[in-house]
């Protein structure tokens, strides 16, 4: 009983993940696919918890299920407004997508078998941890031992937002981003938008700070903060800033800029790009994490809000 129960739970979880994945791909309708995708992400994050990877679980729940889900829902809403939300799952147009998806899956399966199993990184990582400056091995890898990957990831996020902004028409460039939000003052949304942000702010800041020693980090905390910003914007208190505002631009590049500067300082002072002396590692990593969290939060929130849509959405302007 005691050994069979976890096995039963894991089997049910696997079935849930596979079922949700299948329903996402095979079901009719964009909206249904998005809802199943979110369910899939949540089930996947529970699976990560079962595997003991709580950091990955947090990232999957916040970014994979939460933020990506909201992005997809926003895209669906935009398609519906444009009267373009046909069912892309039908007809000849579906075949290239299906083939590409199947090909990618095949390539991943091939890579899984073809690549050599990595040696257990445990002993080497445990030996290096005293020099990392932080207690959480995940943070040590992301921001110290393999900081390159994280630096490039933060720049990729920025590039994605630039891609969204490229959809802006020239005359809308100085308009507020996204659609105008019509919320009654004293209404449900206004109240919700006032009650939740203080708690969300606390949780987000805590996740960023706690990432140095325990579960958390810039990406998880930044996503929670992005959620707080979205809630405030949706409640219209205040509306999102214009994308040409200098302060906003500064917040967007703060993370990658601080990261790059720390890397260059390492190249000059410590003998290698992104090399951090162990004595300085903790303050440097925490500084990078704070700047990164700010940039991630602002970038993700603006990505969901979308490009400025000017007169089409802002009525009488």
């Amino acid at each position: 009983m005691t050994t069979a129960l976890p096995l039963l739970l894991d089997a049910a979880l696997c079935a849930l993940i596979l079922g949700a994945a299948l329903a996402t791909v095979a079901g009719r309708g964009v909206f249904r696919a998005v809802v199943f995708f979110i369910t899939y992400g949540l089930a996947l994050s529970i699976a990560w918890v079962r595997l003991g990877a709580v950091d990955v679980a947090l990232a999957e729940a916040a970014i994979g299920a939460g933020l990506t889900g909201v992005l997809l829902l926003a895209a669906h809403g935009r398609l519906r407004r444009l009267r373009a939300a046909g069912d892309p799952g039908t007809g000849a147009a579906a075949w290239p997508a299906a083939l590409a998806g199947a090909g990618l899956t095949g390539a991943l399966i091939w890579a899984w078998f073809a690549l050599p199993l990595p040696e257990d990184p445990g002993p080497a990582l445990a030996g290096a941890m005293p020099h990392a400056g932080v207690g959480n091995p995940v943070t040590a890898v992301l921001l110290n031992f393999r900081a390159w990957d994280t630096l490039l990831e933060s720049i990729v996020l920025l590039a994605a937002l630039l891609g969204v902004w490229m959809l802006t028409r020239r005359q809308d460039w100085h308009a507020p981003p996204g659609l105008a939000q019509h919320t009654a003052s004293g209404g449900v949304m206004a109240g919700f938008g006032r009650v939740l942000p203080p708690i969300g702010l606390m949780v987000g800041v805590w996740l960023v700070w706690a990432g140095a020693e325990g579960t958390g980090g810039a990406f998880q905390g930044g996503t929670v903060l992005a959620g707080v910003a979205l809630l405030v914007f949706m409640a219209g208190l205040p509306p999102p800033p214009r994308i040409s505002a200098p302060g906003l631009r500064l917040a967007l590049v703060a993370g990658p800029a601080v990261f790059l500067m720390a890397g260059l300082a390492g190249a000059v002072l410590a003998g290698g790009f992104l090399t951090v002396p162990p004595a300085l590692a903790k303050p440097v990593i925490v500084t990078i994490e704070v700047a990164l969290a700010l940039s991630i939060a602002v970038t993700l929130a603006l990505m969901v809000i979308g490009p400025p849509e000017g007169e089409a959405s802002h009525g009488q302007r």
Binding site: V188, M189, G191, F192, V195, L196, I199
Partner: peptide
């Protein structure tokens, strides 16, 4: 307790928003 209160708040508000 915090999880329950937050879920309560979110579910109630979202239900009102959806209904509205």
């Amino acid at each position: 307790a915090l999880i329950w209160v937050l879920a309560l708040l979110a579910a109630g508000s979202v239900a009102l928003l959806v209904a509205g």
